[in-house]
Design a protein around this nucleic acid. Structure first.
Lengths: 154, 154
DNA sequence: TTTGAAAGAAAGATACT
DNA sequence: AGTATCTTTCTTTCAAA
């Protein structure tokens, strides 16, 4: 992970469809060198994939929410089962398994508030292991499009 | 937004570097047709970009957390200022502006627990508008790699 | 590792259906 | 809206430094 790798990562994070030529040009190296670096990053698992970012509204997910969920009993079996089930629900964009007061955080995207309500009542609260949840509608979201490598704190 | 557009979106969500030829082949259409569709989707803002997915560990962000933040007073000025400031912090991956008991949710990624502690104490609690926060370490995350278009509920 | 050059593949443009 | 074809550009491989 040298300067060059960091540069490749930075550029591909913001535009995954940059041609290898253009990538090489911006970094001041030969296309063949650049291609070998990119392949190495993929082989080592540093680059895990390339994804198109889609407008949530176009996917009928104009309403998004964070739902903090508590499940009981807190056994590995219950955690794993709920995690897998939640991840399969079409409304769920992401499942986070958390420490602290809440056991899970679900990032959900749905067409409207009715659909959010239906998700909470018909999907979540129907599960026996779910003992409670709080939902917060997401008014706005700002994401870091290309998080950089942090320095070691020690 | 017909069947074809949905197919293009689905395929590019899971692999943004598919060549136009391969994309066209998998959808059973001509490459030129496919290219025009993809461009139209980008022009209309349905496709918002293409991003490489990077292993958090390689970015020294092996420890991630969700931090729920409360700010006061709850004015537009305070909300906007905190939102912009948080988004600029290098540890912050994403800022969510929420309804409900908490005003913000910060998705943060840091090298280790020391760095998380330092973030909370040195960055967050130093801000005068922050009146409280709770942090939860993320043990696991499962994301839907290619969320599909939801049907209208009505 | 990095490079330049050569062969093969894909993109972009145009005209036609 | 979709297709066929041509030209230009890019990717990929490989031998060499």
């Amino acid at each position: 992970m040298d300067e060059l790798d960091a540069g490749i990562i930075r550029l591909l994070q913001s535009d995954a469809r940059l041609s290898n030529r253009e990538l090489a040009r911006q970094l001041g190296i030969a296309p063949s060198t650049c291609l070998e670096r990119v392949r190495s990053l993929a082989r080592r698992g540093v680059i895990k994939g390339y994804h198109a970012e889609i407008d949530p509204a176009a996917l009928n997910r104009g309403v998004q929410a964070m739902v903090a969920v508590q499940v009981r009993p807190l056994s590995r079996a219950v955690i794993d089962t709920f995690k897998a089930s939640a991840a399969k629900m079409p409304e769920v964009l992401s499942v986070f398994v958390l420490s602290g007061g809440d056991d899970f955080l679900l990032h959900v995207g749905v067409p409207d508030l009715d659909a959010l309500h239906a998700f909470l009542l018909d999907r979540l609260s129907k599960r026996r292991e779910v003992t409670g949840f709080r939902s917060s509608v997401i008014f706005q979201q700002v994401s870091n499009p290309a998080p950089s490598r942090l320095a070691q704190s020690s």
